[in-house]
Design a protein around this nucleic acid. Structure first.
Length: 285
DNA sequence: ACCCAGGGTGACG
DNA sequence: CGTCACCATGGG
């Protein structure tokens, strides 16, 4: 996509981007509707995101932040037009694509993605958002924007300093000890950035050594923070889609990954995201 | 009261 | 390797 910066606003054009789909599709939990777009905190900075001519705009930004942070966050170099063409060879994804106009996968911060998807286990999106906001208010650094106070997602050290009781009070339920243990592990040296240089299989195993991270959560983290497009998170919705639309019920992990690889030629994660959104808006049982 | 939500853990074959 | 009870919380 093309980038243009005027004042404190950056415009990206050349490919569709729909903030509503991007932020309501269950990959990110800290952006909410505001005016004609969405507003949230990412990388410790406040950000508005809105549709614009053949693309979208974000503000307030500096040229530095656009170059070093936001281009990457929004994966603006990824060409969804081509990906859609490839995925259209599957008739069922082809039917889902029109419902997903402007969908993009983000590259979110690894630690935030790790913790929020631990919270996502056996939970629903509305409640996940509530829990995350409470945790941020409790231990995230304050961010002031237009006179209002917001909070960054906590650092590993800040989150690790909370007690299980603190997290339970935020509504984390039985996931509280998982969050504590995993936050401590990262604070004490578990390296998340090394995952960028690992292949999908190795990265998945590595993440699953953390408490509260199983196969599905690991796939979400790999897809939504590390851009590992082979990841194929399998939640209750996707299980329904595969059964209802493909008459397919995988017996094990390998059978599912082979299916995804064959059907979606390396873009399983993106196909999955289209199907997830499609299933939800169509309320597929 | 029951069922569900972007599931994982630990125990047991 | 597969199965299964159990886990907390709030909304339908």
């Amino acid at each position: 996509m093309k980038t243009e910066i005027t004042e404190n606003t950056a415009y990206f054009s050349g490919d569709e981007m729909n903030p509503e789909i991007v932020f309501e599709c269950g990959q990110a939990f800290r952006f909410n509707p505001r005016d004609n777009g969405y507003f949230g905190i990412a990388h410790g900075m406040p950000l508005n995101v809105e549709k614009a001519a053949n693309g979208f705009k974000i503000w307030p930004v500096t040229a530095d932040a656009v170059e070093n942070t936001w281009k990457r966050y929004f994966t603006i170099d990824k060409d969804y037009c081509t990906i859609k063409k490839i995925l259209s060879s599957d008739e069922i994804v082809k039917e889902a694509i029109p419902y997903c106009c402007g969908m993009r996968l983000l590259m979110q911060e690894p630690f935030e993605t790790l913790i929020t998807f631990i919270i996502s286990a056996n939970n629903n999106i509305k409640r996940i958002k509530g829990i995350v906001e409470k945790i941020c208010a409790l231990s995230g650094e304050a961010v002031i924007y237009e006179g209002e106070k917001y909070h960054a997602f906590p650092t590993p050290a800040a989150l690790a300093s909370l007690s299980e009781a603190d997290l339970t009070a935020c509504g984390a339920g039985y996931r509280a000890p998982y969050i504590c243990e995993t936050a401590c592990a990262v604070r004490d040296g578990f390296d998340l950035d090394v995952i960028f240089s690992m292949d999908y299989e190795a990265a998945r195993k590595y993440l699953m050594t953390l408490k509260g991270v199983g196969p599905k959560v690991a796939d979400c983290i790999l897809l939504f923070a590390f851009d590992k497009q082979e990841a194929f998170p399998r939640d209750v919705w996707i299980k329904r889609v595969l059964k209802t639309l493909y008459d397919f019920e995988p017996k094990n992990e390998k059978e599912l990954l082979d299916f995804a690889e064959k059907k979606y030629s390396g873009y399983g994660g993106i196909a999955q995201q289209y199907l997830f959104h499609y299933a939800r808006v169509k309320k597929l049982l």
